[in-house]
């Protein structure tokens, strides 16, 4: 089986995978990073979003081998030194999550959204969440969380 090496949450990891192994499978099954979720099989829901080289991607729609040599950030790597990332903190404060299943992908997408657009309007946030489905919150508190985190992240 092919070997691969990548940086995941700041640590170098190696593994051997099949050609067909998806990045999300490698993260969950080989690295036991089960924070990244699989909510669909048609690349719609976004529960599996992680950052690869700083950009959000659907880890269910990327082969593990395509991440060979790359830098991967998952939800487990977002909080630093026991401190929640401002986006995580904002989701908590604003009740931006209920069942928590879409949350890892939603948070990773939201962090990228604000990195790309540090001062988004509500409309831009809603549009920017096009790739992430949530069935619990009605999105309102997710949008609120992102707008609030953006303020903090702008400093």
């Amino acid at each position: 089986m092919p070997e691969l090496t990548m940086t995941v949450n700041g640590k170098q990891v190696t593994g051997s995978v099949e050609g067909r192994t998806l990045l999300v499978q490698f993260l969950r099954d080989s690295l036991a990073l089960t924070g990244t979720h699989v909510g669909c099989d048609t690349s719609q829901c976004g529960a599996c979003v992680v950052h690869v080289d700083g950009k959000p991607v659907k880890s269910c729609t990327m082969l593990a081998l395509q991440a060979d040599g790359r830098d991967v950030l998952t939800i487990e790597g977002l909080a630093k030194g026991g401190e929640l990332h401002p986006m995580q903190e904002a989701f908590r404060e604003n009740h931006g999550l209920q069942c928590g299943f879409c949350t890892p992908g939603m948070v990773m997408a939201s962090v990228a959204l604000v990195q790309e657009n540090p001062d988004p309007s509500e409309e831009e946030v809603r549009h920017g969440l096009e790739g992430n489905l949530c069935r619990c919150t009605g999105y309102q508190n997710i949008v609120k969380s992102i707008l609030s985190a953006a303020k903090v992240m702008r400093g």
């Binding site: 990244t36 979720h37 998952t74 939800i75 487990e76 928590g100 299943f101 949350t103």
Partner: peptide
Amino acid sequence: LPRTEDERFLTGQGNYIDD
């Protein structure tokens, strides 16, 4: 009151069936 379960869910430490 903010939720107790959120820290777990927000850091990828939730324990769902597929986990």
